[in-house]
Write a protein that binds this DNA or RNA. Structure first.
Lengths: 190, 190
DNA sequence: TGTACATCAGTGAACGCGCGTTCACTGATGTAC
DNA sequence: TGTACATCAGTGAACGCGCGTTCACTGATGTAC
């Protein structure tokens, strides 16, 4: 089935996706190669056909996730309506369901993992700058300062929402952050 | 030397201190029992005279660090001058040297470790409430909302400062967060 | 169309290192007489 | 004051499990003739 030409590339992608989910949920050290491969529908032996080591996988996963997040923000920020773009960025980032599922921004779920792994830090720096750029483009007022604060507030809110272990308090953090970052409430709500 | 009565308690304390430093620097999974004991000036075998397991040590370390942070904030917030208290809380929390050394708030250094360990999550919830209380007491205006945002901003700034891997960008995050949280710049600076 | 062979992604048993944990032993301190 | 003994914190060698990594093998797909 399917052209065999890109079968290899497809399974590689499957492994990356599986690792992206599991690493964010349980931390890089909390997930074994066998668990990643199982989630991808394979057995652990084949892993080294696609990656040189678990560490290499971890570096690629964090880099991919960070880059994707930055690119999404950039694309949104370059669309026509900047207020709408900001609204989309913020409400996606602070979506309670995403946060609860653990499939949220890798900065918040893999923060300390990334901070301690040299391989991922460079990627993190690049992604950070991209996200700041995007925010600068969307925000009114003193832009750089506001962008730095907005990003800090959003990241902190997600970290704290995940930590609090209490749905009500989590929701409070996310809501307060959204209200603080969005300059005025969108008036289009039904 | 020293009364033998509390020698045991003293070494226990030494182990906790050593673990507090190393866990924040390298993550709980990144530090072995032998490294902790070495840092405490002991050999690894004696560890189990003081703690039932590494997991028990991790739980006690995070609980102790979180509780201490919350209590410090509470004490400050109950002193006479609330503006000064807020200023102290914020500038200590966002101190670039502390952040660079890794000996900063356990919420930022152990965030994902704590979020994933049941034992520590309850402690984290309690500490969070204590810190929010303290901020509420110091802040003017719509307090609860402002306290939630202020805490998110500070935590996020420290997380991002540690991630960015670039001293200049780190400093920008910390400075922007301080300016955003403190209502007006303190006028007493020389 | 059919047979023989090459290629290669994936399998699963096995290896070995690191680390949490155990345990028999040491050596220092305090007590009994 | 001095000797024998009990207590107990700490030592370091050893154990065993988990997990990252390797490797001989399988089986499916594509190509040659």
């Amino acid at each position: 089935m399917a052209e065999p030409a890109n079968r290899r590339a497809e399974t590689r992608e499957k492994i990356l996706t599986a690792a992206g989910q599991l690493f964010r949920e349980h931390g890089i050290d909390g997930v074994g190669v066998d668990a990643v491969m199982k989630q991808a529908g394979l057995t652990h032996g084949g892993f080294y056909l696609h990656f040189a080591s678990k560490e290499a996988l971890a570096a690629e996963v964090t880099q991919t996730l960070l880059q994707r997040a930055a690119e999404q923000w950039q694309a949104l920020s370059q669309s026509g309506d900047r207020a709408a773009a900001l609204n989309t960025i913020v409400s996606r980032y602070l979506d309670p369901e995403l946060v609860a599922s653990g499939q949220c921004c890798p900065l918040t779920t893999l923060g300390s993992d990334v901070a301690r792994r040299g391989a991922s830090r460079a990627a993190a720096g690049g992604a950070l700058r991209g996200m700041l750029d995007a925010l600068c483009r969307c925000l009114p007022g003193r832009k750089r300062q506001r962008a730095l604060t907005a990003l800090s507030t959003m990241v902190g809110a997600v970290v704290l929402a995940r930590l609090s272990g209490d749905a009500a308090l989590s929701a409070e953090f996310l809501k307060a952050a959204a209200d603080s970052v969005l300059p005025v409430r969108p008036s289009r709500a039904a």
